[in-house]
Amino acid sequence: MNWKNVDQVREDLVKQDYLSTDSIDLAIYLSSKLNKPLLIEGPPGVGKTEIAKCLANIADVDLIRLQCYEGLGAEHAIYEWNYQSQLLALRLMESQDNSIEEKESHIFSDKYLLKRPLLQSISSSKSSVLLIDELDRADEEFESYLLEILSDWQISVPELGTIKAKTIPTVIITSNRTRDLSEALRRRCIYIWIDYPEFEKELAILQTKMPNINKELAEQICLFMKELRQLQLKKSPSISETLDWAFALSELHFDHLEKQIVEDTLGIVLKDWQDLRESQDSLSELLDRVGVVQKLPS
């Protein structure tokens, strides 16, 4: 990406409907110029993954995504031999008079190599954005694999030799901090922390993503979310929940919040039954603070 200065990053992100902060712009700019992966941490749903999607759109390249999980190993992230096909190929070759070396070179050729996201991104001749999502879910051993790839941009396949990167992808790593990532990995990255947005920022995001939303409703939703995040919840609602809720309320043609509506649709915002119970107990107080006029029961 050929940005000449930080302001161009902001302009490009705005075109993608992504409202960033100065730190995010600068981190993206520097990671691109210094050729370093971008490590993004923050609570779930604040737009970490969205950055990768926007960057892929800006550069008009493919987004290659590696979703991490516990037990993720090299065979799911880097490469794997197609064992069943190799076995069948050997069976088919039984009637032919091929030497062992020939058979070996045949079954360990590119045809039987299943390229997983990491190998795919570095062996592709076209540049790409590689998203390594929720790395904290993967084991520490996987981080070590990653270190090797991110520092040398090459992968060693014992049967084929070293595969060097044809193009260096833009790497975005996200983490929800369920565990701490190693210092070695952090050192190799440009780090940003994305937190829940302030009221004004959230309102701007809501109005950008949903230009037709009623202004009063949007303000009330953002204020309510702000108040909700002050409560000690197990899972605080994030921007994605705000957008979902706003979308639902608009679809139902509401132009302001009411206690009954909030009660009925709170499940869109809170995903834990204990959180739901606790917030329902203090709902009247919350709505008072937001400025929602509550009707007295007749």
Binding site: S23, L26, L30, D180, E183, R186, R187, I190, Y191
Partner: peptide, 13 residues
Amino acid sequence: RTLEVCICKSKRD
């Protein structure tokens, strides 16, 4: 901010 982005590697930083 530039120094912050280059130097900080964790939330604590």
